[in-house]
Amino acid sequence: MFNLLSWLIGLLSLVIVIPAQIPLLGWANWIALPFIVVGIVIGALSSSDSGRNFCLVVLLIAAVRLTLGGGIL
Score class of each variant (00 low, 15 high):
W30Y: 12
L66Y: 01
G70P: 07
D49I: 13
L5Q: 12
L73G: 11
D49E: 15
I42Q: 05
V58P: 02
L60R: 10
W30K: 09
A44W: 13
I72D: 08
V64G: 04
D49T: 14
N53A: 10
V41H: 03
S13F: 03
I61H: 00
C55T: 00
A20S: 14
V37M: 08
G10P: 00
I61P: 05
S6V: 05
A32F: 00
R65D: 10
L66T: 09
Q21V: 12
I31M: 11
I9P: 00
N3T: 10
G71W: 03
S48L: 13
L59P: 03
V64Q: 02
L12G: 13
V64R: 02
L66K: 06
R52P: 01
S50T: 14
P34G: 04
L8Q: 11
L56Y: 07
L5G: 12
W27V: 15
I40E: 03
N3R: 07
A28C: 13
L14A: 09
N29A: 06
L59M: 11
L4C: 10
L24F: 15
N53V: 12
W27A: 10
L73R: 12
S50V: 13
A20M: 02
Q21K: 10
A44H: 11
L12M: 10
W30F: 13
G26T: 07
I22V: 14
L59K: 03
I72N: 10
I22F: 15
G70A: 09
V57W: 11
V38L: 14
L24H: 15
G26E: 03
A62F: 01
I18K: 04
A32W: 00
V37Q: 02
A63I: 08
I36R: 00
I36L: 09
A20R: 04
I16F: 11
P34M: 02
G26I: 07
F35V: 08
L33H: 03
G43H: 00
V41K: 02
Q21W: 06
R65N: 14
G51E: 07
S46D: 15
A62D: 02
G43D: 06
F2I: 04
G71F: 06
L45W: 12
F2E: 15
L66H: 05
A62K: 01
W7H: 12
A32G: 05
I40V: 14
W30M: 07
V58Y: 00
I40K: 01
L12E: 03
L60G: 15
D49C: 09
N29Q: 12
L60W: 09
R52W: 06
S50H: 09
S48M: 15
L14Y: 09
I18E: 08
L60F: 12
V57P: 01
V17C: 03
V58H: 03
S46R: 03
L60T: 13
I61F: 09
L45I: 14
N29C: 12
G39K: 04
G10W: 05
L33G: 02
P23K: 11
V37W: 02
C55D: 05
G71V: 09
F2A: 14
A44G: 11
S46Q: 03
L14V: 05
V58T: 11
I9Y: 06
R65K: 10
G71D: 03
A62W: 01
I61R: 08
V37G: 01
F54E: 05
I42D: 00
G10M: 02
